[in-house]
Design a protein around this nucleic acid. Structure first.
Lengths: 189, 189
DNA sequence: CAATTTCCATACGCTTGCGTATTGACATTT
DNA sequence: AAATGTCAATACGCAAGCGTATGGAAATTG
């Protein structure tokens, strides 16, 4: 994370966005007030004006992340009428590179912060219920839809990590497109 | 991690096993010499007798993890002749709780240590090639086997995280068995 | 214009943890 | 018995980072 141009005056959003950037690349544990301040071109005096402490900052950042992510999913996916199209849009969205996915991936691995586990669980259950609903609308029984949504979601989570782990062995554009089509074929009823 | 009974004298294996326990539960970044020493009932003087530094310890611990895991996979899965049985064994093994899975999950999230990325990639590629080989032996084309093994592996990785994230909502034994059967049905040719 | 508010810099004390140096205790070898 | 090797304890200096306190600068309000 590079130092930004010194800005006239910072607001809480500036801090939160910088925090999400750290979380995306290094996880919640790497969020540190002083290096963040340095990156933003200030010292920590102003940080403590805006936030009670480090955890307050992280919670605010995650709240923002969650809200933005919900909005994106609603616009891109759950505005579609046809459940098949919705599921397809999910597969394509889930394979797109984005900071949101990176943040989500690091939250998945967090073992130390109860508030992280809480946000993670809520976001995950919400997404799963959207997927289950879509599968049910295609005609699946409730119990099959439940298993299938869990499976499809596991594929998303797995893909998040595979893309990073096998960087350079997965990243050819045609391979990604092929894979997504393959997955959609396997997981769409 | 609790303090163990004070042992007469520690060997490198003691340190490595304690380190894997920390990695499993909190990730590589949480490995710290002094708390480890405390947990083992000694002070860090003897740590530095056995290991050059913290990284040396972590690398040794990961080397042990990798070696044990390879052995387990070979015994439980790749000793089977029938590729269908092998794949089924993989699905069941991958859903079993184990420290090895926990370690693997935290390695997946590590963004800070090049040597971790290296081990992770090697382990992952090795497992993928085993899976691909098994799918091919069931009669799949090479390119389908490749995609299918990536998909099946993504499901494993996804499941690792879902089990933790949705703790208490996934952990009923019948649900796990149902899920594994469901997955096997979907992903076995 | 003075008072208040907002944002910010800096000093301080504390904690955690690292690696190095030194010394001690015990076991093994010569 | 002396020398050597193994394991371990402790002190030390350093760094990173946290939160608190204090004072300053700029903007806004009355």
């Amino acid at each position: 994370m590079k130092s930004t141009t010194k800005k006239k005056s910072l607001n809480p959003e500036d801090w939160e966005l910088a925090t999400l950037d750290v979380i995306a690349h290094e996880g919640v544990g790497a969020v540190a007030v002083e290096p963040l301040a340095k990156a933003l071109g200030v010292t920590k005096g102003s940080f403590y004006w805006h936030f009670a402490n480090r955890e307050d900052l992280i919670q605010s950042a995650l709240k923002r992340w969650r809200s933005d992510d919900q909005m994106l999913i609603k616009q891109r996916i759950f505005s579609l009428d046809d459940p098949h199209e919705r599921l397809k849009a999910w597969f394509f969205l889930s394979a797109e590179p984005s900071q949101s996915h990176l943040v989500y991936a690091t939250l998945l691995a967090d073992r130390k912060h109860g508030f992280v586990a809480k946000v993670l669980k809520e976001v995950t259950l919400e997404r799963l219920s959207y997927l289950q609903k879509a599968y049910q609308e295609t005609g699946m029984s409730e119990s099959d839809a439940k298993q299938q949504s869990l499976l499809a979601y596991s594929v998303y989570v797995g893909y998040l990590h595979m893309a990073k782990t096998l960087h350079g062995k997965l990243k050819e554009s045609e391979n990604i497109q092929n894979y997504v089509h393959y997955v959609a074929n396997q997981l769409l009823p």
